[in-house]
Amino acid sequence: MSAALLAPEADDDRPLLTVSGLTKYYGERPGCLDVGFDLHPGEVLAIVGESGSGKSTLLSLLACRLAPTRGTIRYRMRNGAMRDVMSLTEAERRLLMRTDWGFVHQDAAQGLRMRVSAGANVGERLMALGQRHYGDIRAQAKDWLQRVEIDTDRIDDPPRSFSGGMRQRLQIARNLVTAPRLVLMDEPTGGLDVSVQARLLDLLRGLVADLGLAVVIVTHDLAVARLVSHRLMVMRQGSVIETGLTDQVLDDPREPYTQLLVSSVLQV
């Protein structure tokens, strides 16, 4: 990993991502209403809420998989210019998505190529960027497998032969190999058993801190939000009803709905 790519820009006070007035209607029905936030480099924002609250819609909008009805998503490019993501050409947007952004799916099968080897999965983004040296690509793939704690002699095995936790870690490696600055995550620990979840969260927290990633993580699990995120947004019926520092929101929820959400977590 070259240090130049990770060095923080001089003007780090400026947000990396500015979202304002983001609204999506599915016909008459609102999916997401007037959402706005700033995300700074190195910051982890968790979006929590019950199912149907619009958090996945919001993430799809951020990832440009859905076109918003209203609102803007502005992103600070590597050259420092703020650009409206929706106004980029398709070529620019796709390039941005596979270099400077990452997307971690809940179901690893959606984010991985299940039929090709782990090494090729990690190397795909590098090859898409024009790397044409097999030895180099393989070395980088190996390095990333190590960083996500996958045994390097599994490099030629397809992800189909991996366990759920390994697949998820492989998906993370595949996304981080191009040193992105923003990663969107959709329930990355959903469907994993608790001990695997804990290990993945631990790894995630380490990587986020080491690489200075900005992350938007969608989860219904408040424990996940507590562990990895700095800030928290609570959504309900498409709107953001409460936002603040994670510890503050979870320890001292103001909205009745948030209080309900926090108190409904089982205590062991």
């Binding site: 796709r94 190529r113 090729a120 795909e124 090859m127 690509i137």
Partner: peptide
């Protein structure tokens, strides 16, 4: 976007 073709050769 032809990086994918090299994935096959990599494999």
């Amino acid at each position: 976007e032809y990086g994918l073709m090299h994935v096959k050769l990599y494999e």
